[in-house]
């Protein structure tokens, strides 16, 4: 597999949200605005890339039986690092994303890539894979955030597009499920058209 395709596969072909439907909790929970979606995506990208690198580097020394717990400790370490960094530099975003930052530990995308890719491939490839899947996740979260923000508060990235309030329900919980559902329909439709 070429180096470039390692990065680009996460965006369409193996998109973690629209194709694999993984990591639904942060996807639904943090996308009340485009900015929050982008922030959550980048936070996950950081943990995914760093844990992929370390898992790939140490997987030769870890006995098969304690593989999964060891991966979880590695991931949890980077999540704690991320918590410190965000508390220091982006306290506002850290407060908004709240519980979903520590919950990156149990995001199935991160553990899934560690087990399925990083433990079997070289450090460089694992880093690229982390960046690729992370970018795909960031992209889908930002798109969902944009749709919900546009419908819910008539703005994108905080810039007001139309005067008025928008449909509040899209910012609330039901809107998250419905918006993601229809985005998936659109994605399926486009995929069917291409193939």
């Amino acid at each position: 597999m070429s180096k470039l395709s390692l990065i680009t596969k996460g965006i369409i072909k193996e998109n973690p949200t629209f194709v694999l439907v993984l990591g639904m909790c942060p996807t639904l929970g943090t996308t009340t605005s485009a900015m929050n979606g982008l922030g959550m995506g980048l936070a996950t990208l950081f943990v995914l890339t760093m844990s992929n690198i370390v898992v790939s580097a140490v997987s030769g020394f870890i006995p098969g039986k304690v593989r999964i717990p060891s991966f979880i400790v590695i991931i949890a370490t980077f999540v704690t690092v991320l918590q410190f960094v965000m508390q220091a530099f982006t306290p506002g975003l850290y407060a908004t994303l709240g519980i979903f930052i520590p919950l990156i530990v149990v995001n199935c995308i991160v553990l899934g890539r560690a087990e399925a890719f990083a433990s079997k491939n070289s450090v460089g490839d694992s880093a690229l894979d982390g960046i690729g899947i992370g970018l795909g996740f960031t992209l889908s979260l930002t798109v969902l955030g944009m749709v919900r923000e546009l419908l819910g508060s008539a703005s994108i990235f905080g810039i007001k597009l139309i005067e008025g309030d928008g449909i509040l329900v899209f910012i609330l919980a039901p809107g998250a499920f419905i918006a993601l559902g229809y985005l998936l329909v659109l994605f399926n439709k486009l995929k069917a058209k291409i193939s």
Partner: peptide, 12 residues
């Protein structure tokens, strides 16, 4: 999944 998500939205 799409119809499941939309149903979940209505349940919510």
């Amino acid at each position: 999944t799409p119809i499941a998500l939309i149903t979940a939205g209505i349940l919510a």
